[in-house]
Design a binder for these strands. Structure first.
Length: 151
RNA sequence: AAAUGCAAUCGCUUCAUCGCUCUGUACUCGAUACAGGGAGGAAAGUCCGGGCAGCACAGGGCACCAUACCACGUGAAAAGUGUGGGCAGCAUAGAUGUAAAUUUAUGUUGACAGAUAGUGUUGCAGAGAUUUAGAAUGCCGAAGCAAACCUAGUUUGCUGGCGAUUGUGAGAAGGGGGUGUAAGAGACCACCGGCAGCGAUGGUAACAGCGCUGGCCUUGAUAAACCUUAUGGGCUGUAAGACCAUGUAGACCGGGAGUAUAAGAAGGCGGCAACGUUUUUUUAUCGGAGGGCGGCUCGUCCGGACCCGGAGGGUAGGUCGCAUUAGUUAAAUGAUGGAGCAUCCAAGGCAACUUGGUGGACAGAACCCGGCUUAUAGAUUGCAUUUUUUU
RNA sequence: GAUCUCGUAGCUCAGCUGGUAGAGCAAUACACUUUUAAUGUAUGGGCCCUGGGUUCGAGUCCCAGCGGGAUCA
């Protein structure tokens, strides 16, 4: 499963399919058992679990249909979030690799108005910084459900 | 030149860096490198239709639904749509005319068959709303009866006659004129108008104008009320459907039906044999129970023993369907910067324009195709009308 | 992707074959009561989701849109 990655692949600012969360069963598990970090405008749900990918994390992005009726608005928000994550993912990648773990991430945009790139970029940066402050759980052990959300 | 209406087209361009998706090729097989493709006019709404799939192979009649001026394309097709035409309405302009109006041209709009096949509805108002209606305001005093008087008659009242006038209403039984009459009325006459029928002419046709009738004129509106006529339509929908994998209950309850007939072949058993019996299978006849052809019925097909209903149990993963160079299964087109081109704002200028700033309409394919509808900053082109300016 | 329903007073709903808008609760005022509640009487409140069309006349019929809700193997 986990083939050793070349050093260039890890450091380059890419986001291919193996780095995205695509399986319905795993998404359901993340939604029901994951922990959440909330900030105004954005929420992150994450869970340390074993993933069928050489990358240390898999990610997905979402925007609520209730706040954004039009599909092109939701598409744009997801594209902006994907761009921000792509540029800054090395922050969490190095952190996860140091602790020998894998993590599933779900970014939910909860704002009301259509944002621009700099706003989303800053939000993603703050989120990733706070992720590095959480105590990671090695993938060998089952995750603890009753863990408190970090302030 | 501007504005408005209609029709049509476009709807940011380009460069650099980073990144996404599909296909192909290469090798050290990493999801690495290279090459190529990569969102609209509406992709939207799902309002119509087709491809395609299932319901047995998609049959007849009724019911139901849809459509409705004509010709030619497109289409399986009523349709829809394109081009051209006919008719009707509206607007503008011109001509004739005192005027009402008529007519011509241009533009534009029209769910544009039938109300003389039948049924229904037509509130309120009004005398009366469609079986030759009705008498409120009215007109008449010819005819009949009665009374009075100045008694061959006149007046008044009642019976009566009338449908012109006023008024109501969306709509009141063709128009104004004459004859006629007690008063009146298409009751009659000429003209005009409408409808129907017939005839010939022009046109492929819709239709047009013309002529004729001892014809009808008592016959409003509504079919987007039922309906009539003509034409078309079987129903359900890609969550259709096919295959693989996993799993389960051929169990339970209620109801119904009962294992056909004949011939041939093969095997088993009994018997010395003829033969008998039983199982499997083929053909022919019959086709009960029940079911299908999603409304009913006819007709037809399946059905050789199980069928119908109830209540439950189980699985809910994958591949195909699925794309002629967009293409996926949490679903790809983005970000940043530079230059240009629009919009908007501010300042300057008589103006062309200059400087600075802002910053790009509606909107994102999910099986495909055609039509319709809706959203749309702005730009361009054509036609028509109006206004102003110049020649 | 497909199929189907519903928009009427502040709320929940009637309104059948077209004729001009109704019920219950709520609100306001008055009466009763020391006061409130309950009760009784009266009153107001609607561009019938929006825009066109048919018709003398549309909540109702037809067309298009907007918004809510439900279902599918």
């Amino acid at each position: 499963m986990s083939r050793p990655l070349s050093e260039t692949k890890k450091t380059r600012e890419t986001l291919c399919r193996a780095e995205r969360l695509t399986l319905k069963r795993r998404i359901d598990e993340l939604m029901s058992q994951g922990q959440a970090i909330k900030q105004p405008g954005m929420t992150v749900i994450f869970k340390f679990m074993e993933l069928p990918t050489p990358f240390p994390a898999q990610v997905m992005f979402s925007a609520s249909k209730r706040n954004y009726k039009r599909s092109h608005d939701r598409n744009r928000i997801k594209r902006l979030m994907r761009e921000g994550y792509r540029k800054q993912k090395h922050i969490v990648y190095s952190f996860f690799e140091k602790h020998q773990t894998q993590c599933a991430l779900l970014f939910i945009f909860t704002g009301r108005q259509l944002p621009n790139q700099t706003y989303v970029h800053g939000k993603i940066f703050g989120m990733l910084k706070r992720l590095t402050e959480t105590p990671p759980i090695p993938i060998a052990k089952p995750s603890d459900h009753d863990e408190k959300i970090q302030p």
